[in-house]
Nucleic acid binder design. Structure first.
Lengths: 230, 230
DNA sequence: TCGATTATTATGTACACACATATAAATACT
DNA sequence: AGTATTTATATGTGTGTACATAATAATCGA
C-alpha cells in the first residue's frame, strides 16, 4: 500500500493550479474534503497547502477557506553567505584587507536605520575583500558595540567583521536593500574600477530582537551577479 | 494551563543559539529530550527546529542529530510582484507601452538558458513600464509558445506579458540573477537616462516542471531599490 | 434598517503514536 | 587492516483526535 505524502499532495495541488482545474480567484475544497478525496489525513493536506501558501501560490484564511490568488506574489530566496566562502565557492583564493577602523558617532542616516540616537559611538569598518588578488567587494560597516561587547577584543585585521559577526552575533532579523549605484571616486579607487562604473550594492541592517547589531553597505566589483531561486 | 507552542519552542531555541548556550558547532539535545525538557510533544519540537533549519540556523541530519552550524548561511527572501502592482504600491499611476513584438529564433544565450534548440521560434517582447509617466522598468522577454499556447491570442499591448504570464502560466520553479549593468545606448534611450548609467537588472528564467516558459531581463531605471527580508 | 451579538466553520496547532529512512557506529568477515 | 554487513538512533512523516482561533454568516434587538 502506497501512503500519500505531503509532497504528493502538494504536487497534486500544484497541478490543479497550473491546469486551471482550480482557476485563479476560485476557492478550493477545504482541507477535510481534500483529505478524504486524496485518501490521507487532514494534517497532511494542511502541511502541503500551508507550504504553498507561504510560497505565495495560495491564499488561506481561517473560516474563509483557501483560494488561488488572482495575482500571486511569488517569493524568491537567496543566500547571505560569508564573503570569504562566497569567493572560495567560486574556486578563487580569498584575501582580505582592513582599510580603516575607528569608533565615532555615525552619520545621521546610519543612526536612523539602526534606530539609535545619533551621538552613540559606534565602530566603523572599511574593508576590502579580494578574489584572486582582484577587488571583489568593498564593505562599509557600522557596528553597535552595545549589541556585541566582545567585538572590541576581536582583531578585525585578521578576520573580517562580516565573518566575525556571523559567527559571534546570531541575528534574528534583518532587512536588505539591493540596488545599482555609480561608483563614487573613493569606492572606485578601492575596487580598482573607473568612477561611475555600475556597482551591484547590498545595504543590510540586522537585529537581535529589538537590538540593532550592524548596518553594512557592500559594493561589489563590476560584473558581479547574485543568484536567487524561486 | 499554558500550552507550549512551536513558536515558543523556536524562540527558546533561538535564545539558546544567540546566548551561546548552544555554541556554534555544538550538537544540541535531540528532539525527544527537548520535548520532555520543555514539556511538549516531539512533533512540536520538530516543527520548531525544522523551520530553524530551513532558515539556515541549524543543521539537521538523520541519526547525526542537530547542530549549530559554524558558518550559518542565512537566507533572505524577496517578492516577485507584478510590475504594475509594484508601481501602484508606491502610490504612482502606472502605464505600460509595448515597444516591440515579434516571433523569431532567439539568440543563442536565451536558447541555452531555456535549454531549447536554437531554431525554435519564440515570442520576443520589448515593453516599457512607466510610473507617473516616467520610465520605471524595461522588459525584454522571450516566451516559449509551446509552453503557453494561449498567449498567441493575448493582446500584449493591453496587458503586459509580465502580468499575463503571472495570471496564465503558473510556474513551478525559476532562477533569478541580480546584477548592475551600465545602460546600453538603446536601453538608456528607452529609460530616458544617460548611456552608461547604473541599472539594477533582474534576469529571470521560469519553468513549469521541465518545460521552460520564459526568460526575461528587467532593467530598472536608475535609483531603483529592491527590498528583501531575512 | 442598522448595529451589536452570537453561531458556524475553515484553518491553525498540539498530542500520542507508529513507522519510514538515512546514516553513524559497531560488528563480522575476508 | 580493510571491507562488507548489521544494528542502533535521530530525524522525517502519516494518522486520528482534540481544541484554539479568526472571520464570516446568521441572528437578534433597538
Amino acid at each position: 500500500m502506497t501512503t500519500i505524502t505531503w509532497q504528493s499532495v502538494q504536487a497534486e495541488a500544484l497541478r490543479r493550479i497550473r491546469s486551471r482545474e482550480w482557476p485563479p480567484g476560485a476557492q478550493i475544497p477545504h482541507e477535510a474534503d481534500l483529505a478524504t478525496e486524496l485518501g490521507c489525513a487532514r494534517a497532511t493536506v494542511n502541511r502541503a497547502l500551508r507550504d504553498l501558501a507561504s510560497a505565495g501560490l495560495l491564499d488561506r484564511k481561517r473560516k474563509a477557506g483557501t483560494r488561488v490568488p488572482l495575482n500571486p506574489v511569488r517569493k524568491a530566496t537567496f543566500d547571505i553567505p560569508i564573503i570569504r566562502l562566497d569567493v572560495q565557492a567560486r574556486g578563487l583564493p580569498y584575501t582580505y584587507r582592513l582599510l580603516h577602523q575607528t569608533t565615532a558617532a555615525p552619520p545621521p542616516d546610519v543612526a536612523q536605520r539602526l534606530m539609535l540616537p545619533g551621538d552613540t559611538p559606534m565602530i566603523h569598518i572599511l574593508a576590502l575583500h579580494l578574489a584572486a588578488n582582484a577587488p571583489f567587494c568593498l564593505e562599509d560597516r557600522w557596528i553597535n558595540p552595545a549589541a556585541t561587547p566582545h567585538i572590541t577584543t576581536a582583531d578585525l585585521s585578521e578576520i573580517s567583521a562580516n565573518e566575525w559577526l556571523v559567527q559571534n552575533a546570531a541575528f534574528t532579523a534583518g532587512d536588505v536593500a539591493l540596488s545599482a549605484i555609480a561608483a563614487p571616486p573613493a569606492t572606485a579607487h578601492h575596487l580598482n574600477c573607473p568612477p561611475g562604473a555600475p556597482l551591484f550594492t547590498v545595504d543590510r541592517t540586522t537585529w537581535a530582537g529589538a537590538t540593532p547589531i550592524t548596518c553594512v553597505r557592500l559594493c561589489y566589483a563590476p560584473g558581479h551577479q547574485m543568484q536567487a531561486k524561486i
